[in-house]
């Protein structure tokens, strides 16, 4: 692989006996928006902090534009970092918080200009003399963002920037971050455990689990072609539907609920089941069907199926009703090995 703008080679990190990261290789292009996605404890925040220089990797190399920065301290990397807790200084005003990192670099008047500019950017001009405790969560988040951007970092690092906000504000700020990224184009790396956030914001998603990178790809790639059962399960919903006996060693098969097709009773590859659960989800219904074997014996195997609302009405599906469905081969996902299947559960 051609090394990117930011390149990580064989990064590993242990905390005592605990492994936080192992063998991390990653190349990030300039101006890219990357999301590090994974369940809590997968090592994504540790990776971000190693990028920021706040943690030292035990092994591996970190390069930016071909320059080795593994040993460069955080302050000299010129990376802007925004923390999950925002880490706004409670005793300093909004303006002072934003100017905090500029004090050693610019003259007084330059600082004033820069703060003015940033306050305009995050639309907080009115609040400059308030202290963080007087602001709402969303406003605090924007101050933190402005502070991280203050010295025009080469790279912006965001650690779960939206997790502390309620749903409405979150969506609004999601767009704001994307707008700023489009406007300034700084390479941005964001840690999140929210798959929706990752899918909507990222140019590329880095899926992590158990201290490793599992898959790197565009949101579409990751969703449509998950490389492992874990990725399939973590991003969106999925049904695991058995093994492909043609493949050597046996490969696992899966299908997403929206791709399961309801069919007529006499469909050649049709399977039969009974509706056991029904959830209304606005645009569609999600139903859980229990597979039936010979002589309609329940098999205690379940399939999740998303059915558009209008089809429900036209097909008149009710609880405990027998239905027929099929897995269109073009939508069946194949995994290379079954090893990770267990890991997903």
């Amino acid at each position: 692989m051609k090394p990117g703008y930011l390149s990580l080679r064989g990064i590993a990190k242990h905390f005592g006996k605990q492994t936080a990261l192992q063998d991390i290789h990653l190349d990030i292009k300039k101006h890219e928006f990357i999301c590090l996605l994974g369940p809590s404890g997968c090592g994504k925040t540790t990776l971000l902090r190693i990028l920021a220089g706040l943690e030292k990797a035990d092994r591996g190399k970190l390069e930016i534009s071909g320059k080795d920065i593994t040993a460069v301290p955080a302050g000299k990397r010129n990376f802007g970092m925004m923390f999950q807790s925002y880490a706004l200084f409670p005793n300093l005003s909004v303006g002072e918080n934003i100017a905090y990192g500029l004090r050693n670099r610019l003259s007084k008047s330059q600082i004033a200009d820069r703060v003015e500019e940033l306050l305009g950017l995050v639309e907080l001009g009115e609040q400059r003399h308030k202290v963080p405790a007087q602001l709402s969560g969303g406003q605090q988040q924007r101050v933190a963002l402005a502070r991280a951007l203050a010295f025009s970092p080469d790279c912006l690092l965001l650690d779960e920037p939206l997790s502390a906000l309620d749903a409405k504000v979150r969506v609004k700020l999601r767009r704001e971050i994307c707008r700023l990224h489009r406007q300034f184009g700084m390479t941005t790396i964001m840690v999140t455990h929210d798959q929706e956030e990752a899918l909507t914001m990222a140019d590329r998603i880095v899926v992590m689990n158990k201290s490793r990178i599992i898959q790197v790809g565009t949101p579409n790639e990751v969703y449509e072609n998950p490389r492992t059962p874990f990725v399939a399960d973590f991003i969106g919903a999925v049904n695991f539907i058995g093994m492909d006996k043609n493949k050597h060693g046996g490969a696992a098969l899966a299908i997403r609920p929206e791709n399961v097709q309801l069919v007529r009773e006499d469909h050649e590859k049709g399977k039969q089941g009974v509706v056991r659960e029904l959830e209304y989800r606005g645009a569609h219904y999600r139903l859980v069907a229990e597979l039936l074997g010979m002589k309609d014996a329940p098999l205690q195997q379940f399939v999740v199926i998303d059915v558009p609302a209008e089809s429900m009405i036209s097909l008149k599906i009710r609880m405990n009703q027998k239905i027929f469905f099929a897995f269109p081969p073009e939508h069946v996902i194949q995994f290379d090995s079954t090893a990770d299947l267990a890991a997903a559960q």
Binding site: R49, A87, F89, R147
Partner: peptide, 27 residues
């Protein structure tokens, strides 16, 4: 106090003793 104050200062290239004097001590 937020454990990230020091990290935030560090990432902004502000020496630890300045962060100490401007933030931690007053608080």
């Amino acid at each position: 106090l937020d454990s990230e104050f020091e990290a935030a200062s560090e990432s902004m290239n502000v020496p630890w003793y300045q962060a100490l004097l401007r933030v931690t001590v007053p608080l």
